[in-house]
Write a protein that binds this DNA or RNA. Sequence first.
DNA 1: ATATTAGTCGACTATCTCAATCGACTAAGT
DNA 2: ACTTAGTCGATTGAGATAGTCGACTAATAT
Lengths: 146, 146
Amino acid sequence: MRLSTKGEYASRAMLELSVRYAEGALHIRDISAAQGIPERFLEQILLQLKRAGYLRSRKGPKGGYFLAKPPSRISVAEVIRVMDGPLAPIDCVSVTAHDPCPREPYCGLKGLWKEVRDAVAEILERTTFEDMAERSRVAKARSVTP
Amino acid sequence: MRLSTKGEYASRAMLELSVRYAEGALHIRDISAAQGIPERFLEQILLQLKRAGYLRSRKGPKGGYFLAKPPSRISVAEVIRVMDGPLAPIDCVSVTAHDPCPREPYCGLKGLWKEVRDAVAEILERTTFEDMAERSRVAKARSVTP
DNA sequence: ATATTAGTCGACTATCTCAATCGACTAAGT
DNA sequence: ACTTAGTCGATTGAGATAGTCGACTAATAT
């Protein structure tokens, strides 16, 4: 039940872009440094998020990446799906990539996997990057002023 | 967020052994045929479950595998953990293999991953193979008598 | 006893995915 | 025009995954 490194990096990068949403475009280098993500790998991840419509970018000096829409309108689920594909533990209960298995009718387990999928999806869909940015600010404030 | 094939096969095998708990020992071959799992691969999986204490076995003719305790006392979570390791999406929120990350204090995401882990664990821990066997019987009955 | 059945064990392999890297290219600003 | 910074495709190395194999050991039936 693991999240890939790519999915983790993507959500961390999106969080960074959300926390500093007001600053405008951020360089790959800055995001990479702030979140400890290999620069060249992050480049690839941001590009993928851009192609999926969650980021926009500007080239040249003063360039960088920025969110295509406000953090309140991007859920964590969307980002994870772009990087790692369906949230479902197995394909027979995937909403986005459903693939019925032959023993379908008697399978007592299907309902359980669906329950798991739904629980995960519910959490990740209701949580936006605005929520995450807010939590991040609170955590930081608490660690500075104890 | 995927379940490995091994985890899936293991839960299917445990389900078969639970549904037919009253029959006593089942051959690898029978479980393999009933659930469509490669025999030689299943052998390995059952052995692993045996070593973890969930199965017992008898050799020779009339031999086979059977549950070490009633299906009501084995949760799906236990079986998945034996095959795939921790349920947590990332190690910093794993109960069984906790591994704190350096950016811990400011990480706004940790709470979210913990929420996901807890939701998944709650479902898989409360569900036993008796529940699964029962659902399986109901599903079968419904498909026979429509 | 011995032949047969069936689980045990360790090693092995092929394929895939993941994480990461690289080089060359293109666009934007100064 | 020069520098900065994102774009794109290809490639790579490591490790996990899914699956196989051969030889061994224990139990049963005849």
